[in-house]
Write a protein that binds this DNA or RNA. Structure first.
Lengths: 336, 336
DNA sequence: CCCCAGTGTGAAATCGTTCTCAACGCATGA
DNA sequence: TCATGCGTTGAGAACGATTTCACACTGGGG
């Protein structure tokens, strides 16, 4: 079917090794190079990457395992990773785990079988604790989620700081009874919850954090139930864009006026968050930077394998919008 | 580093061929199978996919070339494709072209080099005309965009029908001066424009279609300029979710009341379209079906290579929202 | 007792590259 | 004249699997 290097060699009247050199960067005479190029064009030859990888023992492939590409955070990250990879002449294998530890294990095996050059991974909480650097034949960079062991290069947001910042912001605007919805499957959710709790405590307020599955409908259900309780919160913080969607939908369904009856703030500055009424206050994550930094850490690690591991902590940007406008305390009986 | 099949064979006390058979589905005694499995576990052996692909001449890989994974349509499609692929024991190589014909060519070469089993491709208008089935060593399924030649299996929306449907809907609601913004780089944009023009003509109305680059800012700019013109349209139809974003943003910036001063309708039922005020009328595309159908066509083609090509035309669903509520004609001097 | 079919096994070829090594031609310098 | 070295080339050995082929063993039927 497809021509191989032998066909090219025959047509060019040179040996296979010479063709290989001509196509690579070996020393060949200009004359031969011309002939080989002509033969390549004539035969439509394209090198077989499997053969090349097998022989050279370099896959030029990096793995990218994320929870769900439909989460806009991961969409943007993967785009950045791919761009960087292709620019470096590498390919990307993208896998979605759906936060399922079994699929994580499956895909880690796959990466091993592909003999990837490196892996960028956003593991669930369930697997992250068991990861050991020495179990991998290639460097691993964690993204969005950090392992306690510190064995891996990592790119994360300053999750605690960002959460605390949101709490500060709400308190400053006059809110006191502030609840939080956080993802239960990732360390990121946990960290953001911790930041929220710390922030609340710092203000002498009682935290009320609830952990849920990282899906928009889960957030909507949780919010609906919560807002039906007697002691309804004045504000709710959520830990990602999907929850923002669910929470906003719940508020809408209950006909709550935002921020008068419920203030909303969260993570991920998605395109729609400033188009809804009111616009939503969010922590914007530097998504492209996540991808680029992860690739940078990976390449750095490949260059200097024994260097101490590094954690790049990126900070988010608070974008204040109308969903957290100053609370008018009139309707509350309690004093400040 | 990693153990290979030879190591396993040595440890299990059998030949390499027997190991291969034991791991595959060849006939081996239960005894040997046990030993091999033990040896695999002990050595941590994982087959080398490059070697396997080279020898077996089956890459078990399908290529997926889309314009931009950040476009929610392609996000959903790619998720569906991946799920189907992994379920069939195949991997996916995902590439983003950014609607750049050069990158399309680059990635088509890459697919050839990877010796993919099949390709799912959403090409730009610039390349789609030049595609010839015989130039590929593997089946190609076009998705979202159709080639005139009919040489390829294809999954598309009934673009003309859907566009005309939007026009009908708007006319029914009392709108007459209806403009349209369409993507210039894809046949889909062209088809939707054609459906719009046909729909307008059918109602005896004068179409005004403008073709722009498939990016949200382009739509915003175009809309801002358009709405500043003397003869401002009563309604604008757009051909995808990114344009919807741009158009809505433009209307917002101009402080236009929707639908009183400008009605809006378009394609792609993105999560936010029913959260903004007013909710946006859209044609919903069965995105998961796109991915699944494309995979189905691909597998079908692999099974029966010479069967005539098929085009699966999916129909969209009109979701009526407040952005196209009935026009009150009071403010217009012209008679209907 | 022989033949045959079926089962299980190993040796060796093969996939398409890259890479090592030896060798060639030719110019240069001793 | 001969050794040295450089630039260029080809033969052939890998890489790690699958697959073909031949063969040994078993048991059943003639």
């Amino acid at each position: 079917m497809t021509a191989n290097i032998k066909d090219v060699a025959r047509l060019a009247g040179v040996s296979v090794s010479t063709v290989s050199r001509a196509l690579g960067k070996g020393p060949v005479s200009a004359e031969v190079r011309r002939q080989v190029e002509a033969a390549v064009k004539a035969t439509g030859y394209r090198p077989n990457l499997s053969a090349r990888r097998l022989r050279s023992q370099r896959s030029q492939t990096i793995g990218l395992i994320v929870a769900d590409i439909r989460n806009p955070f991961f969409t943007a990250v993967s785009r950045a990773v791919e761009d960087a990879a292709y620019r470096a002449g590498m390919r990307v294998i993208l896998c979605n785990t759906g936060e399922d530890p079994e699929r994580e294990a499956l895909y880690m095996r796959l990466m091993q079988e592909e003999r990837v050059t490196g892996l960028i991974f956003a593991p669930t909480r369930a697997t992250i604790g068991g990861l050991r650097a020495q179990d991998f034949d290639y460097p691993v960079v964690l993204i969005d989620r950090a392992a306690a062991s510190g064995e891996f290069d990592t790119v994360v947001l300053d999750n605690r700081g960002a959460s605390a910042r949101l709490v500060d912001h709400l308190v400053e605007r006059g809110y006191r009874r502030i609840g939080g919805l956080f993802g239960s499957t990732s360390t990121t959710g946990i960290e953001r919850e911790a930041g929220y709790v710390a922030g609340m405590s710092a203000h002498g307020l009682i935290p009320d954090a609830r952990m849920i599955a990282p899906l928009a409908p889960a957030a909507e259900d949780a919010a609906l139930a919560w807002l039906a309780e007697a002691e309804r919160p004045e504000a709710i913080i959520v830990s990602n864009g999907l929850f923002l969607l669910g929470l906003f939908r719940a508020a809408r369904r209950l006909g709550l006026s935002i921020p008068r009856e419920l203030a909303i703030a969260g993570f991920d500055n998605e395109a729609w968050t400033d188009l809804v009424e009111p616009g939503l206050t969010v922590i914007e994550q530097p998504v492209e930077t996540f991808g680029r930094e992860a690739m940078a850490l990976l390449f750095q690690r490949l260059k200097t394998p024994t260097a101490p591991t590094r954690t790049v902590m990126l900070s988010g940007t608070l974008i204040e919008r109308a969903s957290t406008h100053a609370l008018t305390r009139a309707r509350f009986k309690e004093p400040l």
